[in-house]
Design a protein around this nucleic acid. Structure first.
Lengths: 148, 148
DNA sequence: CTGAGTGCAAACAGTTTGCATTACT
DNA sequence: AGTAATGCAAACTGTTTGCACTCAG
């Protein structure tokens, strides 16, 4: 995980982009926050640390990372764009989101990946990515007995 | 499909909501447009037909349909909320979106559903819904040889 | 010195909300 | 009459863009 930061820096450099301080800060923060991160979360975290970065630069950096396949946009919850680092090994996970409290949990499932792989070969699109989102009630909310 | 309209009307009525003209219009339009529909598309369609409905009412109706499980929000593409009718039989599909042109195609896959079902039993959330989105290049864009 | 990158602020797009009006029941 | 629902317009939220400025190569 930590060396994703190095990988990202290298890729940026190799592709002729400058590894500026603001960009580095966004990359590091994205790596730290890890999974399903919003632009606002990055901005807040950076502000706390005193290394303020303008929102525009954050968005531009995230878009760049997405374009370079260093990060991906995940469409779990509605309304806000969320990003997460892409592991160069190709390993990835998906998300379960709680419909009551909004909590997001990650999971991996070999069977699911297999089904998607096979499916991808049958369709007439050239598939290069996929997202799966499960929705339900998290253990905490179940215990609280909240029926939406 | 057509009788989803009746089903929706009945449910609204049964639950004590008025089946007003604007609501009906939204329900019918959603049924007609079918898969992965935005509020704007509904508004436009209705305007064309002269039965103008305010955007606020469209959003309120869609939210109501979502709450009553008559429709669901699909998180395929980023930025806009898309809705589609829920078939009372439980039958449903997922989407492939073209990263070049934005086209959306629906698909169904038994294997995939099975994998998700099994997975759902293993996790500690009470899963009641899921979304799968494949991304790639549609046949048209592939032919056009567009590398993003 | 030159252009890539930044930050600000204004512009935008989609969605939500407050409130006076309309229209079922 | 009483209240659910509507429509408008203003408010909001998240994101993008134009532009002058900065800074690294």
């Amino acid at each position: 995980m930590t060396d994703w930061i190095g990988h990202a820096r290298d890729t940026l450099e190799r592709d002729g982009y400058r590894v500026s301080a603001p960009r580095s800060a966004v990359v590091e923060t994205l790596a730290t926050l890890g999974c399903s991160v919003t632009a606002k979360e990055i901005a807040d975290r950076l502000r706390e640390r005193g290394e303020d970065v303008g929102v525009a630069s954050i968005y531009r950096t995230l878009e760049l990372l997405d374009r370079l396949r260093l990060a991906r946009r995940v469409d779990a919850a509605e309304g806000v764009a969320r990003y997460e680092p892409i592991d160069p090994s190709g390993e990835h996970h998906h998300h379960i989101v709680c419909e009551s409290c909004g909590a997001v949990t990650a999971f991996e499932d070999r069977e699911l990946e297999q089904a998607i792989e096979q499916l991808s070969e049958r369709v007439d699109y050239a598939i290069d990515a996929h997202d799966v989102t499960l929705r339900g009630e998290c253990p905490g909310c179940r215990a609280a007995g909240s029926r939406h």
